[in-house]
């Protein structure tokens, strides 16, 4: 029997060995105690009040690739979780991101205080109150920042949009949170030409948040206030430079000296994407044509008058 238990434990241990790069051994060793059970993908329970199945599974691979990879589970969760079976009271543990992220110089650039304010203004909080938390969008066990560091804008778009679609393409979740079923995203966006292409090229939040924020905007607007005027993005001072291309354009400006480079290399936006040099060249050609033709016309008139004399 002992051999069987040892073999079983070994099996679990090897199966949860993450593929990610090694971190500080203490964090790995400590977390290993939790992952022994919580790495099982089917680990879950049925909430007795709502009847919803809640997953308790955490992928070590995702965790050790996330922004929280250097943390121990008990840095956020109660130390009492170290005893097993866990105390039933621990089920009501209430975690809040800003407990750690507030007033920490390291996180200043992320403007968490501003994010907290924006979140309170967002339609999600306005409609759902405390029922809606940071964790509904950001899974702390897999979360990674994208827009600031990624050079692959399409990848950022895909990652960020999947956060929204996680609920907004899932009627069950929407019904659970809001009590109603929303129209399909295609119906709601039927006015938008080339829907799929737009969704691959901009993030939901680029139109559905107010752009005037220091970090990544969290003030999700009610649908009536979302950007619907094409020219907001499709013009030289494109809104996207304050949103999607915000961090990229700052980097690019330092490196290449002009703003357009970032859009030119990554995507095309009618009206906004104007190559400076081609634009200048077209004005020169147009101007020279007019000058040449006017001069030609002038000489023709002069010669005709001369002949008549």
């Amino acid at each position: 029997m002992k051999i069987l238990i040892a073999a079983f434990s070994l099996l679990i241990l090897t199966s949860v060995e993450p593929a990610a790069k090694p971190n500080s051994p203490s964090n790995r060793e400590e977390n290993q105690n939790c992952f022994r059970c919580h790495s099982m993908s089917t680990l879950s329970y049925r909430d007795t009040t709502t009847g919803i199945i809640k997953s308790l599974s955490v992928s070590p691979e995702e965790f050790y690739n996330s922004n929280h990879k250097d943390l121990e589970c008990i840095d956020c969760h109660s130390k009492d979780f170290q005893t097993f079976p866990h105390n039933a009271k621990l089920k009501n543990e209430n975690l809040y991101c800003l407990d750690c992220h507030k007033d920490e110089p390291k996180f200043k650039q992320f403007h968490f205080e501003s994010i907290e304010k924006e979140f309170k203004q967002s339609i999600h909080y306005q409609k759902l109150g405390n029922k809606f938390t940071c964790f509904d969008c950001h899974d702390p066990h897999s979360f990674e920042i994208h827009a600031r560091i990624s050079k692959d804008i399409k990848g950022t778009i895909l990652y960020d949009n999947s956060i929204c679609l996680n609920c907004h393409e899932n009627n069950f979740k929407i019904k659970y949170l809001s009590g109603k079923i929303l129209p399909s995203l295609y119906t709601a966006h039927s006015w938008l030409p080339h829907i799929n292409l737009h969704w691959q090229s901009v993030r939901c939040i680029d139109c559905h948040t107010s752009p005037n924020t220091p970090g990544v905007s969290h003030a999700i607007l009610p649908k009536g206030k979302a950007v619907k005027n094409c020219v907001e993005c499709h013009s030289k001072n494109s809104l996207l430079l304050q949103t999607l291309y915000k961090f990229e354009s700052k980097r690019s400006r330092n490196k290449e000296g002009f703003l357009n480079a970032v859009i030119l290399n990554n995507s095309y936006v009618i009206g906004a994407t104007r190559n400076y040099y081609l634009n200048l060249l077209s004005f020169i050609i147009f101007g020279l044509t007019l000058i040449a033709l006017s001069f030609h016309g002038f000489l023709r008139i002069k010669s005709k008058k001369r002949k008549l004399k």
Binding site: N229, C230, V231, E232, H234, S235, K236, I270, G271
Partner: peptide, 18 residues
């Protein structure tokens, strides 16, 4: 109009131009 689109003073609306 599409190439030189503007927010405040469009000669014709962007989607009309399209």
């Amino acid at each position: 109009n599409l190439q030189y689109s503007k927010v405040n003073s469009p000669v014709i609306e962007f989607h009309t131009a399209i």
